[in-house]
Design a protein around this nucleic acid. Structure first.
Lengths: 233, 233
DNA sequence: CTTTAAAATTGACATATATCAACATTAATT
DNA sequence: AATTAATGTTGATATATGTCAATTTTAAAG
């Protein structure tokens, strides 16, 4: 899809891919970011950041799609969020131990800007509105994790899968039909079950005409029923 | 246990109960906190803060013990942490929506200071070291929630219960024998299982001489074995 | 001290869920 | 087009876990 000519101007000034957080920077701060960022393109499937590594930069996703997940026990994963453009990605390591506490993998070809962590922190110190918005973003993330903890531990499989699909609908794609770029294994990691169980639940949902998965797309046919299943648990 | 005469000086200056975060305040800031805080004593069982209510203050636990939990589905709870003195309690509501996103209940008679949120925020703005420590504390909390999410969704009951007990040992009491002030129901909420299952797992642990629960205390008899169960899952 | 309420305990049972192994389908590579 | 690898699918089976109902123990209240 990308070729030699579609490269961006490479300047943060006027960058259309800038995540909303950075809109709060003044021109000087933006110049500083510009001078201390690296832009990298990842192919689908590639690892953007690996849990446990040193955090030298914070991230901003310009285009594409990625999954952000905790690496758990014996190779199992818990997906915390699907990252769509344009999103800022920091994490608890910024102020705790300068490590990444989750792994990020590209689901599609994905363009990411890496912004020097020290520069980012310096700007945070000097720009109150920026700092507040950063904290708001982080807090919102924490709330989604609270929510995930509840629904993953207190609902059973159909409710969890319904929540995963409604999450994709409400937060990522915002339409009843969306491309099925998330594998059954990913859906299992989003809803804390084995991939075989995920397949079976999805089959049941299709039998009951709640949704359709074919031609690389997922269509929600009965949103109300899905919400009901989510609600019942 | 408390009587008319054991009241504190009521000044933050030189207060022995101050949580470590507030040690980073200068005298003027501390005076400001002092003038905008309320101290309240709760009896065991009382609700200190209720999820969903407006966040007018942040909290500091001076003495006693409390449980901090998410209210989930159909009255079920997920305990995020046991709060021991002296601890600061903020939460994602500070910068997101000024609401409390968890409920806090006293497990013992507990003394809490409520510090005006706006005053707290104002001090954060002006004191960089204080702000950094606040963020570090919040980030540490987020990491424990990540950890909880993994172990609650990827381990089975014996591993989860072992983790709950080791959490009490490592983080709260720091000794092999500690008072059993946490009910079976609380242990169930700490390890995401029914209280009947919690009872059965604890019985098994006692049969295998991993621990002893009697006379209102819990003694860890075989820490290594517990850690092994935690590790295996 | 007695009564009542709350918490803990138990076993039987139903069911939710993972695992396994085999197979089918699709995508990637040569 | 052929081959390989990855992903998806299925049913049979074992097991983990919750629910229920009955009972005991402990704590609280009069």
């Amino acid at each position: 899809m990308s070729n030699f000519f579609d490269k961006e101007p490479q300047s943060c000034h006027g960058c259309a891919c800038m995540s909303s957080l950075f809109c709060l920077l003044n021109p000087d701060e933006l110049t500083l970011v510009d001078a201390n960022k690296i832009n990298v393109n990842f192919k689908a499937g590639e690892t953007i950041k690996k849990q446990g590594t040193y955090m030298s930069h914070v991230l901003s996703v310009n285009s594409g799609l990625a999954k952000l997940y905790l690496e758990g026990i014996e190779g199992r994963s818990a997906i915390l969020r699907i990252v769509k453009p344009t999103s800022f990605i920091g994490g608890p390591g910024i102020y705790f131990d300068q490590r990444h506490h989750f792994t990020i993998t590209a689901l599609l070809d994905t363009s990411v800007c890496f912004i020097d962590l020290q520069v980012f922190k310096d700007i945070l110190k000097g720009n109150q509105a920026f700092a507040e918005e950063f904290l708001k973003d982080f807090s919102r993330h924490v709330l989604t994790v609270y929510n995930r903890l509840i629904y993953l531990t207190q609902k059973q499989m159909p409710g969890r899968m319904a929540d995963a699909i409604l999450y994709l609908h409400d937060e990522i794609f915002n339409q009843a039909i969306f491309p099925m770029i998330i594998s059954r294994s990913d859906l299992a990691d989003l809803s804390a079950m084995s991939k075989e169980s995920a397949v079976k639940i999805l089959r049941d949902f299709q039998k009951e005409n709640l949704l359709r998965i074919s031609d690389h797309e997922l269509e929600i046919l009965d949103e109300e029923a899905l919400r009901k299943i989510s609600h019942i648990g």
